[in-house]
Design a protein around this nucleic acid. Structure first.
Length: 647
RNA sequence: GCUGUUGUAGCUCAGUGGUAGAGCACUUCCUUGGUAAGGAAGAGGUCGUGAGUUCAAUCCUCAUCAACAGCUCCA
């Protein structure tokens, strides 16, 4: 009997009999691994543990702790859902049911039936009942003809439509219990590990995402191997609701929207403005240190500017319509991006290679037409401010500049408590070159240099094809917030195209004209989006150097308002943001209100404090910290909570 | 943009085919209280907007706008 060589993730390899299964390999490694194994990666593809391995392969066994394991688990849960649904309601037609980041969904056509809370409960119960039966997921290769026969007989038009796009020889069915589905897999060995099940919600979704197609019912669900994990997940959802930046933005009086002003146009309230301006100051400071020159450009630009940049052709319809002036033929657009303006600043005088790199930074407010259904709090708006900058450099400086920008972005993340981040390297889709402008050679070079820069800073990157901007590849930063949700924030983009379109040049040491390279970058992304993510990350408890209100001064009674006034004045003199609560209320009440407003420090002053020049310190969420002299508090506060600077 | 749900006081939300209610917030008064809500009184709403049905509409019907959820999109 012949053998296959199996290479494990640690690089070691072992020989196994031909057609060994993943489960058998897991068992040979350890009992525990076999118990927890859910799926296996074979030469980069995720497989069932029961599928025979016929040739030499490198493998990795996935458990619940791996994405590949979770996906198989949730994919199998989707099938379990379908089985339960079919058992309870006859005539249901099935669309697709994939695993997603958190759980799974299944698109189903329920006919005229409505599907409510009670139905969800019923199906959940049925799923649990079926899961306990320990049903085995069986993979079967089927011919296209047999597959079509099967679903024709069953009467499932959606599956038949899916089959049309598949070629004979690559079609597989998966079967568990009484349910058979067209599916590529992979699945977990059997249903028994699925111990905790929650169907979360029901939504409409068009068949194949096309609004001309029929609307199917999409049921979202999530499952876990342990009941406790489900509990924790549901708790996390609750917590996320409490942290929603739209809710906290209203409660903490940070920003608001007005129908009269317009959709997606945020109004920054006084407290939100303090927060935003502090962030701007922080970035300005860091940028000055990093050699940027601030510039300011207008909010509109002539249409010709965007025709030159290529943005008009590409995005004209998505921008707001041109503004026409009384003078015939004059057309302006609301600025949808700052780069063309910065190119024109570059052009105001001849540049020498000795001048480069030149870095123009601007908190540039831009306007983009987003479809009304896309608007969402501060994360998707129609007017927003980018912490934008454009670096013009020589081709050989790109990598070094890129690394410097990465350092700046990491400084931002570190200062604001985002410890979990990755970067997505967005490349062009080589199969769809029409979407992009510029020559292959430049693209290849840019993509290579970004990767090298990221590697040099030990940045974890994931390359995704087809996600590049039309003018160049980019590096997008994704952070995980305190609840483990991923957000895209900063971005760095290399651009060899715009400098050519704007005929930018510099004189090289050879006395010849050369075209500079442009790097677009925005560490926050936009002020609006960044603040939204920050609010949800810290649940409104901002780093103190950012807090709109840092200190509340709370006199015990009106008799001490005068001393409290002195305290607040001293704080103001020291640039500490404080307010005085001199209402005719009891101290308990004042404390409660300050706690609800998430004010980080409360200074309580009464007879004792007034007599001795002291303050009684209370920390938000922690309670009484004892009394100190006012100047001691001030000194310590300034020392501990000043704006962070890059090392 | 498409589909669904929702729209009542500044906020959170009850409620009814016979032109509206609670709690909090707000105003005034009493109270001068030491670490998460002291007491009393008062003021505040053409029930999202427009049309229709009806003797009568906040409630029923249609349209429209907005918010929310999902889909699609995101320089």
């Amino acid at each position: 009997m012949s053998e296959v060589k199996i290479t494990l993730p640690d690089g070691s390899s072992r020989n196994y009999p031909e057609n060994v299964t993943g489960m058998a390999i897991a068992q040979s490694i350890s009992e525990g691994l076999a118990r927890n194994a859910l799926s296996i990666e074979v030469n980069g593809e995720i497989w069932d543990l029961s599928r025979p391995i016929a040739k030499d392969s490198s493998i990795r066994i996935f458990t619940w702790n791996d994405k590949g394991g979770k996906y198989a688990f949730w994919h199998s849960s989707a099938h379990l859902f379908a089985e339960a649904l079919e058992a309870l309601y006859s005539g249901v037609k099935f669309g697709i049911g994939p695993p997603i980041e958190n759980g799974f969904y299944y698109d189903v056509d329920l006919g005229d039936r409505t599907f409510g809370e009670d139905d969800l409960k019923k199906v959940e119960a049925k799923m649990l009942e079926l899961a306990k039966k320990n049903e085995v997921f069986v993979r079967k290769d089927v011919s296209k003809k047999d597959a079509i026969d099967f679903f024709t007989k069953k009467g499932d038009p959606y599956k038949l439509e899916l089959l049309e796009g598949l070629s004979d020889g690559s079609i597989t069915f998966y079967e568990q219990g009484n349910f058979t589905d067209l599916c590529r897999g992979p699945h977990i060995p059997n249903t028994s590990p699925i111990k905790a099940i929650k169907l979360l919600n029901v939504a409409g979704a068009y068949w194949r995402g096309n609004e001309k197609n029929k609307m199917l019912t999409r049921v979202y669900g999530i499952t876990f191997p342990k009941a406790k994990e489900l509990e924790e997940y549901l708790h996390m959802l609750e917590e996320a609701k409490k942290r929603d930046h739209r809710k906290l933005g209203k409660e903490l009086e940070l920003f608001a929207f007005s129908e009269k002003v317009g959709l997606g146009l945020p109004l920054w309230l006084p407290k939100g403005t303090v927060l935003r301006e502090r962030l701007e100051q922080f970035m300005r400071k860091a940028q000055i240190r990093a050699g940027y020159d601030p510039v300011v450009t207008p909010h509109i630009g002539s249409k010709q500017l965007y025709v030159t940049s290529g943005h008009y052709e590409k995005y004209g319809k998505d921008s707001f319509q041109p503004i026409h002036t009384p003078e015939e033929g004059e057309e302006f657009l609301l600025k949808p991006m700052n780069c063309p303006h910065h190119c024109e600043i570059y052009k105001v005088k001849p540049r020498s290679y000795k001048d480069l790199p030149i870095r123009f930074a601007e908190f540039g407010t831009v306007y983009r037409y987003e479809q009304s259904g896309e608007l969402h709090g501060l994360t998707r708006v129609r007017g927003f401010t980018q912490d934008d900058a454009h670096i013009f450099c020589r081709p050989e400086q790109v990598k070094e500049e890129f690394i410097k920008v990465i350092d700046l972005v990491l400084h931002v993340f570190k200062s604001l408590g985002f410890e979990n981040y990755t970067a997505q390297l967005s490349l062009r889709d080589p199969a769809d070159k029409q979407k992009y402008i510029g020559e292959d050679e430049l693209w290849d070079r840019a993509e290579r240099e970004i990767q090298e820069a990221a590697d040099e800073r030990n940045l974890k990157t994931v390359a995704v094809k087809g996600e590049a901007a039309f003018y160049g590849p980019k590096l997008d930063f994704m952070v995980k917030d305190a609840l483990g949700r991923s957000w895209q924030l900063g971005t760095i983009q290399v651009d060899y195209q715009l400098p050519q379109r704007f005929e930018l040049e510099y004189v090289g040491s050879d006395n010849q004209k050369h075209t500079p390279v442009m790097i677009h970058r925005a560490p926050f992304g936009s002020m609006e989006r960044f603040i939204a993510v920050l609010i949800e990350h810290c649940a409104g408890n901002f780093p103190i150097w950012l807090s709109p209100e840092q200190v509340a001064v709370l006199p015990i009674s009106e008799r001490f308002n005068e001393y409290a006034g002195k305290v607040i004045q001293e704080l103001k003199n020291q640039d500490i943001r404080g307010f005085l609560d001199d209402r005719d209320e009891k101290i308990g009440r004042k404390i409660r209100d300050a706690e609800v407003k998430k004010v980080p420090y409360m200074l309580i002053v009464g007879e004792k404090e007034a007599a001795e020049g002291m303050v009684a310190v209370r920390r938000h969420g922690e309670g009484d910290k004892g009394s100190v002299a006012l100047e001691v508090f001030v000194q310590q506060f300034l020392k501990e909570f000043s704006m962070p600077v890059q090392a």
